[in-house]
């Protein structure tokens, strides 16, 4: 077990299974098919991300360095939250990028209801992404502490 401390971008507590992307998460490429064709598991469609491709993202503790790609990214995250197909939480090793940041803020300001919530912690450090492995158990606490158990 190891603990990491980051910055709270969107508050909340959650316990979920880790899904780890060592490369940047291309939000549009990852979510677009899931949102378009009613895939409630939000299966990742990004062919360029071998860590996530064809993995279920809904309900997982998505661990990543940052998001990349199209500037629809924030809007896609907003839609995923609104439709209840978002990861259980998003845990960034780096400071959050402008696309994901916008999506998280928009969801927090404009959406209501528990099923739209998604705790987000950033700046967890490179050590976090080196330590955490897909399948480990993640616990996110209110103060930005992330506990990883393997």
């Amino acid at each position: 077990m190891k603990e990491f401390k980051g910055r709270v971008v969107a508050p909340g507590c959650v316990k979920a299974e880790a899904l780890v992307s060592h490369g940047g998460l291309n939000t549009l490429a990852s979510f677009q098919k899931a949102l378009q064709f009613g895939d409630k598991k939000a299966t990742c469609g990004d062919q360029n991300n071998p860590d996530l491709f064809n993995h279920q993202m809904f309900g997982k503790a998505l661990c990543l360095p940052q998001t990349i790609g199209s500037t629809t990214g924030g809007m896609v995250l907003y839609c995923a939250c609104s439709m209840g197909r978002q990861p259980a939480c998003m845990l960034f090793s780096k400071p959050i990028d402008s696309l994901a940041g916008a999506g998280v803020i928009l969801a927090d300001v404009w959406l209501e209801g528990e099923d739209t919530k998604m705790p987000v912690i950033d700046s967890l450090g490179d050590d976090f992404l080196e330590y955490v492995k897909t399948g480990m158990t993640i616990t996110v606490k209110e103060d930005g502490v992330v506990v990883v158990e393997g």
């Binding site: 790609g69 199209s70 500037t71 629809t72 990214g73 924030g74 809007m75 896609v76 907003y78 990028d97 402008s98 696309l99 916008a102 999506g103 928009l106």
Partner: peptide, 23 residues
């Protein structure tokens, strides 16, 4: 629009962040 943002910043010398849709 990622391709327009990078063009505006780099080739035109305008100032813009990689803003997301809606923002």
């Amino acid at each position: 629009e990622s391709s327009a943002v990078v063009y505006a910043n780099s080739v035109l010398g305008a100032k813009v962040n990689r803003n997301s849709g809606i923002i």
